[in-house]
């Protein structure tokens, strides 16, 4: 099984994915956020390269809709930085899936990210990526308990 074959699957259903993400606008509108088709295509391209970089393969609709729903109510995201932040969060998400050795489920990792982003990081993506999540994933790799569904006060 070569990598090309895997990547073909990633490329499947792009249209459906695009529609799903555009449909998220209905919900995010109340927070003053929306994505154009062009934005979605940029994000989907980011996703492809991010997956490739992190050597991961994704099935189904992908993480973007979940990411959008989780972060749209953040006080640190507004229309001007929406696409950039979601794109960056997507990269961080895949990176930390690997770093946490897949020990965290998608929802758990998203919860951590959201809580830290709105809380301790105060909207700083660098602090989220380089300090807070790094600490969590190090703890997970060391086999310490308490990182699945727990609170993040100590960070």
């Amino acid at each position: 099984m070569n990598d090309k074959m895997f990547l073909r699957l990633i490329g499947q259903n792009e249209k459906t994915q695009l529609q799903t993400i555009i449909a998220c606008n209905q919900y995010t509108k109340k927070f003053g956020l929306s994505l154009t088709e062009q934005d979605v295509l940029v994000l989907m391209n980011d996703r492809k390269s991010s997956l490739k970089e992190q050597e991961r393969i994704e099935f189904g609709e992908g993480i973007l809709p979940k990411l959008i729903f989780a972060f749209c109510d953040s006080p640190y995201i507004y229309q001007e930085n929406y696409v950039d932040v979601i794109g960056r969060l997507q990269d961080i998400f895949y990176y930390y899936k690997n770093e946490s050795m897949d020990e965290l489920s998608d929802d758990e990792l998203l919860d951590y990210m959201k809580e830290l982003f709105d809380g301790k990081c105060e909207g700083s993506l660098d602090y989220l990526e380089e300090t807070c999540l790094e600490h969590i994933s190090r703890e997970i790799r060391a086999g310490r308990q308490g990182f699945t569904g727990g609170d993040t006060d100590e960070f």
Binding site: D3, E55, E61, G62, I63, D106
Partner: peptide, 8 residues
């Protein structure tokens, strides 16, 4: 619980 897995 996870939409993606590593190549490995």
């Amino acid at each position: 619980e996870s939409s993606s897995v590593s190549y490995e």
